[in-house]
């Protein structure tokens, strides 16, 4: 089994820590959260089972760890926990490019890269984009976002909110956009494929309809290495993820693709051959394209 992994980005004040605090406090799943520092993590002291400055274990099964410059270190520590978390959340720092962090997860065979979620503050986003010191950072954070969450909508008027949607659409038309008042998302917003039975959440949020179509791609025949690389390079921006086990050069390998970046790692035991593509509604039929690689 692989562990779902969601990277959450967004500029300072967008609500990332609020979201993380909500997830940890509710414990709807056994979340494993990687943060840059514990400073802003604020869970009820009664909920803390153990804390050593780098790892905070909660009585509800959740765990929160600090990560250094190497995401892989933090992920390895998460995967080694007994029991391992059901879903890992990485909170990117407010000035980092979350896509640079997310793509490192492509070479982690034990993890499944879920949508890149980027939070924007309804009251501050346009001004941040126009600020001479922060504009390029905020724009870069949106460049590969797959779910954009507009937070603090209760503090914005209708005209402000329209402008936020316009600016998001200019930067990243492929992204699905969700609105929330308090960065309190249902956990279904953190996965491409929502669970069959939505889990109860005591937080209100808009009904989340998933606009991410999926396609299965047969992988029972050998791919040619060079032609597969060519095909991967040709995939349109509407293909957000491609993941699965295929046959390449006589070996079973796990392919993970996201936004023009991909990695092959040795296939873990127990995964059947076959790949799944996840995309926006504009995603074309991919079977013909992949036939070129066989």
């Amino acid at each position: 089994m692989t562990i779902p992994l969601t990277v959450i980005g967004g500029f300072l004040g967008a609500g990332k820590t609020t979201l993380v605090n909500h997830l940890l406090a509710t414990g709807a799943k056994r979340w494993g959260v990687l943060v840059n520092d514990f400073g802003a993590i604020n869970v009820d002291a009664a909920l803390i089972a153990a804390s050593d400055g780098q790892t905070m274990a909660l009585t509800n099964g959740c765990v929160c760890c600090t990560m250094g410059d190497d995401l892989g270190d933090g992920l390895a520590a998460m995967a080694a926990r007994i029991p391992p978390p059901e879903h890992v959340i990485v909170e990117a720092s407010g000035v980092s490019d979350p896509w640079r962090i997310a793509q490192m997860a492509l070479i982690e065979p034990g993890f499944n890269l879920e949508p890149l979620v980027v939070l924007v503050d309804a009251t501050a986003f346009p001004a941040q984009l126009d600020d001479r010191w922060t504009g390029d950072t905020v724009a870069r954070q949106l460049a590969f976002a797959e779910i954009v969450v507009i937070t603090k909508i209760d503090l914005a008027d209708a005209a402000q909110l329209v402008m936020v949607h316009v600016r998001i659409a200019e930067l990243r038309p492929q992204a699905r956009v969700i609105e929330t008042a308090h960065a309190s998302l249902p956990d279904t917003a953190l996965s491409f494929t929502p669970p069959a039975r939505p889990q109860a959440s005591r937080f209100h949020a808009d009904d989340v309809t998933h606009a991410f179509p999926t396609q299965r791609i047969a992988a029972d025949r050998q791919f040619d290495r060079d032609r597969l690389r060519w095909v991967l390079g040709m995939l349109p921006a509407s293909v957000l993820r491609l993941k699965g086990v295929c046959l390449l050069g006589g070996e079973r390998v796990l392919l993970q693709y996201a936004a023009e970046r991909w990695a092959f790692t040795p296939a873990p035991e127990g995964l059947a051959n076959g790949m799944v593509a996840i995309g926006t509604p504009e995603m074309p039929d991919l079977e013909g394209l992949f036939e070129e690689a066989r």
Partner: peptide, 11 residues
Amino acid sequence: AAGFSADSNID
């Protein structure tokens, strides 16, 4: 050891 394959395409 780092998991970087010849077929990986990451920044």
